[in-house]
Design a protein around this nucleic acid. Sequence first.
DNA 1: CATGAATGAGGCTTCATTCAT
DNA 2: GATGAATGAAGCCTCATTCAT
Lengths: 230, 230, 230, 230
Amino acid sequence: MRELLGSLKIQIPEQLYVKDPDSSDLGRKIIETSIILIEDLGFESFTFKKLGTAIGSPESTIYRYFENKHKLLLYLISWYWAWLEYKVAFATANVNNCEDQLKNSIRVICETVTQDQNFSHVNEEVLQRIVISESSKAFLTKEIDAENKNGYFKNYKNLIERLVRIISGISSDFEQPRTLASTLLEANHLQKFFGVHMPSITDIDMKDENLINFMETLTLSILQNGAKRS
Amino acid sequence: MRELLGSLKIQIPEQLYVKDPDSSDLGRKIIETSIILIEDLGFESFTFKKLGTAIGSPESTIYRYFENKHKLLLYLISWYWAWLEYKVAFATANVNNCEDQLKNSIRVICETVTQDQNFSHVNEEVLQRIVISESSKAFLTKEIDAENKNGYFKNYKNLIERLVRIISGISSDFEQPRTLASTLLEANHLQKFFGVHMPSITDIDMKDENLINFMETLTLSILQNGAKRS
Amino acid sequence: MRELLGSLKIQIPEQLYVKDPDSSDLGRKIIETSIILIEDLGFESFTFKKLGTAIGSPESTIYRYFENKHKLLLYLISWYWAWLEYKVAFATANVNNCEDQLKNSIRVICETVTQDQNFSHVNEEVLQRIVISESSKAFLTKEIDAENKNGYFKNYKNLIERLVRIISGISSDFEQPRTLASTLLEANHLQKFFGVHMPSITDIDMKDENLINFMETLTLSILQNGAKRS
Amino acid sequence: MRELLGSLKIQIPEQLYVKDPDSSDLGRKIIETSIILIEDLGFESFTFKKLGTAIGSPESTIYRYFENKHKLLLYLISWYWAWLEYKVAFATANVNNCEDQLKNSIRVICETVTQDQNFSHVNEEVLQRIVISESSKAFLTKEIDAENKNGYFKNYKNLIERLVRIISGISSDFEQPRTLASTLLEANHLQKFFGVHMPSITDIDMKDENLINFMETLTLSILQNGAKRS
DNA sequence: CATGAATGAGGCTTCATTCAT
DNA sequence: GATGAATGAAGCCTCATTCAT
């Protein structure tokens, strides 16, 4: 994967930043450090002031890159979904059987992330934990309609679309491929969170297999059964 | 249902309030008004100061009832889940067939709420929208472990447990009834939100039937198929 | 001492309370508990609300006895000085030699207090620690002149006067007996505090003898030498 | 003294401020105005809001310099002790006789301050009144041990040490030079306060000579007599 | 006499942001 | 392009106190 991605760059909607953080060392440091800090403090307690202190620059410097902390979060989340889409793309490339494509995708989506050497300034492992805990806060806002219109969630939709194509490849008359795809992505994160913090409302545990198995069964069952029913 | 619930009172974990808001007119007004206001402003912009202004009392009065706005939100959410559990209880009472119990439950859970005349100070319709938009913020925090330990989410778990019993009644060897129940509850809300605000990532629309149908199919499929597979 | 004091009651200036706390069980409980609580929290953090919670009564009840927490503190301090004056009185009764009277007085003043069985609702040991830490805050205020005029410090002055009489008995031409007496009382407390919290600016240690010896030497030296010099 | 101190700067422990107030005009204005305001209102009633209004800046500006009003007070007090140590240093320079050194020191310590032209933004006269009324509140707190450990009282200790060296120069076998030095400094302030506000418990009056004479006699007597006794 | 409910004022502090350099 | 200084608005919360019962 290293060579394939060697010249690839994760594309983030331009509207999310003032100046591309991937265009300077300082920018990359902002990304790198903000990931650590948001994980540490939680997004509510995270501020540009604290980030500034952590990277040894004043708050005002960060405003050169991001309009506010909400957009920085959207940037990180967007990065995550784009990166996950690449991973799904590679996991399904040259796989002819659609069901296998779906299984591979679910595995990539549900497995706990480990550091990807291709993007040295992003700790994907920590980033995943941020997306689990914070991503829903990024869209469950009063501004969602305007932000959605502005294309802030483009990368998330791209991933959904890719999954929809795979789903439709398996069962072209299944009527709710988008509902299924978004349910899969969101339920995955929630269950991971419940597994750690509210174990009494889930049966999954720390091991990924458990969760992968559930998601696979859930998805394939509805595609077989659902076609008949819906 | 009116008569049955006539003397019933929704039980909320004591740790969530300083003084039971259901014990005074002012307390009920706080509940009633906070629901409207949180829906209007979003939880982030909602403050005790604004709530005070809305009910014609100073902020400090509200602190007699709730320690902070986070606990008020937890109270409202807890109320919602308890109320929903009652609705599920009634929808499944005297229904012998387990699959019918599940279908009735899903219908109750997924249908858009209309005002329940039994609890005049709570506008359940608006409350549901709050739970959809804000409930995940209430548990996706750094304090989740402590709060969970303190029993803040008891009513949510009660509902999950009720669903688990129904699920296990259908397929006693299905291994992940909790995962399925919590996925059902959370996915329901998310899809409702996507239906309104991000229609491109869901296939459900404003009509409940669509969503109910998806959830029913998803659940029953995995219970039929899943038993064999898992 | 028990019999002698059996029928004695510590007299506190009436202006310091609304209703005499020594006239009811609740009042005595207020005194007893406030001593513990002020020591625990420090006077700044101590509030009537917390005191109310501790004695199981609402704040408003305490306002029946004391106008505000400042007056409650003045009451406690006043009680302490009155009590100390009695102790000095007994320690000097029937002692003919003036120098012995002074030595006995210094001992009583400087030794670390142990519970006096005569006043069961007052823990003198803890009260002394309060007086050490908080008494200067009670007079170093903008209201000192008015409060002094109102007689709030009467018991303190009584003790000073008693010491002045002893001092003048030793050296009638010593010109600053009041300065010496107040210096003795205040320095005693400060040095006790420094001994525990700022050991680098004092030579006294936990043992009383050390402090008593210093105070005795200081006082007697100036009375011998001072007469000649001043 | 002007020339000598021309290039001197009072050193304050760094832990006491966020940004050195002596490094900007605004900072010096904060110092200058806070001295006036604390004297006027008393420390309890003094707030950053009022200080802000007085200097025509919002509260938040002051937080750039000091974490809270308690640290600002510690800064002022620390400044005072450092300044007093310089005065003692100059008053004893080139004085060979130790007793004369002590006498000169006592005079400098006990005389009522007049404005020092070397530090234009500090009104030492008013500052002394603040130290008299407020300094004990700055250490008689629940946080004393932590703050002492953090070095907040360094300048006070420096002055004590200087006095200890002089005392030991007079009587090297006197066992309690620290106790004597701290008693001298604190008693001086208390008596000044009593002289103004509680004249019935002191014999000193408005004139400095009276107090200087007492402190000198007290100190020298114990050093002569104490050596024999202790 | 004691209580419980309610209040209004204001304290301390943090934030997100702007502007001049 | 990066910085450091300064700001204004507002949040959250606590206190001391009053009043009607």
